[in-house]
Amino acid sequence: MRLNQYISSSGFCSRRQAERYITAEKVLVNGKIASHAYLVEENDQVEVDGHLIAHTSEDVYIMLNKPSGITCTASPAIAGNIIDFISYPERIFPVGRLDKETEGLILLTNDGSIVNALMKEENQQEKEYVVTVDKKITGTFIEDLSNGVDIYNPRIKGYTTTNPCPVTQIDDYTFRMTLSQGLNRQIRRMCRRFQYTVTHLQRVRIKHIELGSLESGHWRYLTEEEIAGLK
């Protein structure tokens, strides 16, 4: 097994983060700095930044209905982090993130192989949200959102036009939106472009996995069918 895959499948971090550790020469195999090309064998001892990696063959897949106020990071230095909140007995990490004030569906796992499949923008994985704003919705507002909006993108230090997306009004102040992008605070920025402020934001679906009736702050294991759809 490749070194980055071995580290990510242990639940220590994602595969991308493992690659960063390797590049920074913070990964030792049997006491020696290891390269990206190293293939881990059965009796190898792997350390990442001073932490001994214990590989597990059992993958864990969890969905959480994240409440507002929880930060989607595995860093123990951040108060209110999602790992402390869920308090799972094995090492897991969140797949992607929701803003601290955003609620709803987020996945956690120890399987680094699914992270790239879900997070790479070119894979165009759908994520559905229910959005509440501070004033009455107009037909023009719904149409403008669905056609794409110019918002500032700090990654490129310029403006990006969001992809066209389905937007359906639910009532005077609430609508559903399905995105295939993952721009920073995208929905809030899109609404602000038309002088609307988001007052409540909840993710209700990732790809084929739906939040359903799972209560806020609660979690469950994914079903076999849901796991199969991620791979």
Rank of each mutant, 00 (worst) to 15 (best):
98 L>T: 10
131 V>Y: 01
85 F>P: 12
95 V>P: 02
111 D>F: 04
102 T>P: 03
194 F>Q: 04
191 C>T: 08
104 G>I: 01
206 I>F: 09
150 D>N: 14
105 L>D: 03
182 G>F: 04
104 G>Y: 02
175 F>D: 01
174 T>W: 07
85 F>H: 13
115 V>Q: 02
108 L>V: 09
92 I>F: 05
97 R>D: 02
101 E>D: 15
111 D>I: 02
86 I>T: 07
114 I>V: 14
190 M>Q: 12
186 Q>H: 05
105 L>C: 06
203 R>L: 07
192 R>P: 00
169 Q>S: 11
168 T>N: 10
193 R>I: 00
161 T>K: 15
185 R>G: 13
178 T>R: 04
162 T>I: 08
155 R>G: 09
123 N>R: 15
97 R>K: 10
168 T>C: 00
146 S>D: 08
108 L>G: 02
170 I>K: 12
108 L>A: 08
95 V>F: 12
101 E>R: 11
138 T>N: 13
204 V>W: 00
140 T>L: 15
178 T>L: 06
168 T>E: 13
179 L>S: 05
83 I>T: 07
93 F>R: 02
166 P>V: 00
207 K>T: 08
189 R>Q: 11
200 H>Y: 14
195 Q>T: 00
192 R>T: 05
207 K>H: 11
189 R>V: 08
149 V>Q: 04
155 R>H: 11
147 N>D: 11
120 K>F: 11
163 N>H: 12
148 G>W: 05
111 D>S: 04
93 F>T: 03
111 D>C: 07
119 M>A: 09
138 T>F: 13
166 P>Q: 08
164 P>F: 07
186 Q>T: 03
125 Q>M: 12
100 K>Q: 15
126 E>Q: 13
135 K>V: 05
150 D>W: 09
201 L>D: 01
125 Q>R: 14
110 N>H: 07
157 K>V: 04
152 Y>N: 06
153 N>S: 14
105 L>N: 01
94 P>N: 12
193 R>P: 00
211 L>Q: 03
128 E>M: 08
106 I>V: 14
110 N>D: 06
102 T>K: 06
152 Y>M: 06
212 G>E: 09
133 V>E: 01
133 V>T: 05
104 G>F: 04
156 I>Y: 01
82 I>Q: 01
194 F>V: 03
122 E>R: 15
175 F>P: 02
115 V>L: 06
102 T>F: 07
92 I>N: 02
113 S>E: 14
125 Q>T: 12
167 V>K: 05
91 R>E: 13
149 V>L: 09
86 I>C: 09
159 Y>N: 14
175 F>N: 00
102 T>R: 06
132 T>E: 15
141 F>C: 12
195 Q>K: 08
211 L>I: 09
130 V>S: 02
196 Y>F: 14
149 V>P: 01
92 I>H: 02
118 L>Q: 11
